[in-house]
Design a protein around this nucleic acid. Structure first.
Lengths: 352, 352
DNA sequence: GCGCGTTACTGACGCGCGTTACTGTTCGGC
DNA sequence: GCCGAACAGTAACGCGCGTCAGTAACGCGC
């Protein structure tokens, strides 16, 4: 492994000072360098395969050109997060366009873990995924003026966040079911309601029902917990209810796979007996049986937007406190009108 | 954002020199420091929330305490890589135990992209996932003595690699089908055969059949291409064959979801009409319909082992050229004996 | 009581870069 | 022909740390 070329090497070979090399390679417009000198320096640098030493540059310039991506979810949640690769690609993509790099830090058991990332100046800013209300570090970091962007929803924080409009998207999902004629729509949440996103999706569910004057039956909202197993149990619980729903809004595709399972166990067919709409549009949603109607969440774009916002924040540019990306229903095979919707319009069935 | 404490601050408050602070905090055993002084320094450092500046340390010590994780797959492959989160967790976990960090670099379109990571000394080593034969950079990096570990298989390279034994695992998968009595077993690959892993799994498929004296019909090996769609097409092609297989070995769970779809389209039931065994054991495999029998790939452990090996390499310790982790068949609901295996033992049916 | 080893610590250098303040040179206007 | 502005480039400092060579004090043997 031969010696790394330094800026002195470039300077010597180009017949200029190190300062000039630095000016040229950092493309500084405020200093006058003749275009011949510029070209010569750039040529030599390329010839030598010169790249400024990251550590030295950081030390001198005070910036790391690196951002951190902190996964605040539990290991199990990370493992089954089918959109994580896309989100990560989005962040990395945004970073690269500004010549930044991304350090990924899955949350370890101990607290104060990503503090090191910041205190040791490994990164210039953080994107925090799956933020939690009980996370006091985030607030104190952001309060200190350290650039932080939340990827996901969190109530009552001034920290900029990037997300989809969960409430609106959920409303649209349930609207889809209502449009098909369903009036008895149950819901399985994606997660416990302490998670803002889960609570917001429930709110959207209520919005949709109330807008049509359909009474919200609290018993038909059951909590899921990230994985298919929880969906299985939730659906089983729903099927013990006196009035079985004709449609279910499952606020997570992964959980919906469990819901499918519970329905199969009961011998109920989708969508003939029960319509199911999911949320996320994970890569396998289109290959479920039947293909899952769901809400498409633009994971790459969310990651990209979060990265973009963070870079803006680092550069001192204005960043809106909330960036909400559009999410839209993708209709596939798991939703249809309720079976006897023609024989007995849903509006009447309430009287039965 | 108040000023970062430096080692001088710690030194002053502890009443010692900066050198002593450095010795204590880096826990150097070869210099004599009284335990009282040690304790005092540590106390002050903690009090101040002191963490050595990453850039300065890198510049002085020459090591970044950071490793790179390069994703050599195409964006589409990354997006549908259901095991990526686990692998990433594994690497990060290994890194953390040595106080290293992980920079993730999805492969951008342009070539020479991760070279920067190395030339600018952003990282001390690289784990390269999904290596490809046409990757000359890897060879030249490793040839230069730069620490590189491959996560995944690549033929004919001296670079250390971590993987499962694809051939053996595939053999076990097919053995499972043969044990059930199947004799007409088709295969859908996980990827084109230029990918070493795909070729190895085909080899394992052949091994299993040949060991039982079953003739390998070249026409019953069809290439998949990472996504479910390719599985759908592959299975459709297999179903046009004169003799339909009674079982299919699909060398990727994700592709198997497509295979399921094609079988449904034909009105064929799994496992009653066709048994299917997958590969990978993605989180949703157990929630397919029917639950997919598959080969469990220990993704976290693979990531961890790759990270561990890389750290060993960086530290100058010995690293075996190939680390093969065990993968085992997980039987679920998608495999059963062939329907008429009792009425007409498979061995006889060949004469029909 | 002198030398020598051991213990406990420190001063100063340099890692490779960005940047500030400065120097020298050219050129146009009067 | 002189002056100031614009142009082209440079010397030197410091970012915060790790580390080497060195020093001072102390104990111990003879």
């Amino acid at each position: 492994m031969q010696r790394r070329p330094t800026s002195s090497d470039v300077a010597r070979l180009a017949g200029v000072s190190r300062t000039t090399v630095s000016f040229v390679l950092n493309d500084r417009q405020d200093v006058a360098i003749s275009s011949e000198t510029r070209a010569r320096v750039i040529h030599v640098a390329r010839e030598l395969g010169y790249h400024a030493h990251a550590g030295a540059r950081q030390l001198a310039a005070g910036s790391t050109r690196t951002i951190g991506f902190v996964l605040r979810q539990s290991p199990e949640q990370v493992a089954s997060d089918a959109l994580l690769p896309e989100t990560l690609r989005g962040i990395a993509s945004a970073a690269r366009s500004d010549d930044f790099r991304v350090i990924v830090e899955p949350l370890p058991p101990e607290a104060g873990a990503y503090e090191t990332l910041v205190r040791a100046r490994h990164v210039d800013g953080l994107v925090i995924s799956g933020p939690r209300t009980d996370d006091t570090e985030v607030a104190s970091l952001a309060g200190d003026g350290f650039p932080v962007v939340l990827q996901g929803s969190l109530d009552g924080t001034p920290v900029p966040m990037v997300d989809i409009d969960n409430r609106e998207a959920a409303r649209e999902a349930v609207d889809h079911l209502l449009d098909l004629g369903h009036r008895h729509v149950a819901m399985v949440t994606n997660a416990p309601l302490e998670y803002s996103a889960a609570a917001e999706r429930v709110a959207g569910y209520r919005d949709a029902l109330e807008a049509r004057g359909v009474r919200v039956d609290e018993a038909s909202i059951v909590e899921g917990d990230f994985d298919p197993r929880s969906g299985h149990e939730a659906m089983r619980a729903l099927l013990t209810r006196e009035r079985r729903p004709t449609a279910v809004f499952v606020a997570s595709d992964v959980v919906a796979f469990g819901v499918y399972g519970a329905l199969r166990d009961e011998g109920m067919r989708v969508p003939a007996d029960v319509s199911v709409i999911g949320f996320d549009d994970i890569p396998l949603a289109a290959y479920a049986d039947p293909p899952l109607t769901t809400v498409h969440v633009p994971a790459f774009e969310l990651g990209f937007a979060a990265g973009r916002s963070l870079l803006d924040l680092i550069a001192g540019r204005f960043v809106p406190p909330r960036s909400l990306l559009p999410a839209a229903v993708v209709r596939r095979g798991s939703t249809d009108p309720p079976r006897n919707s023609l024989a007995a319009p849903p509006e009447r069935r309430v009287t039965q």
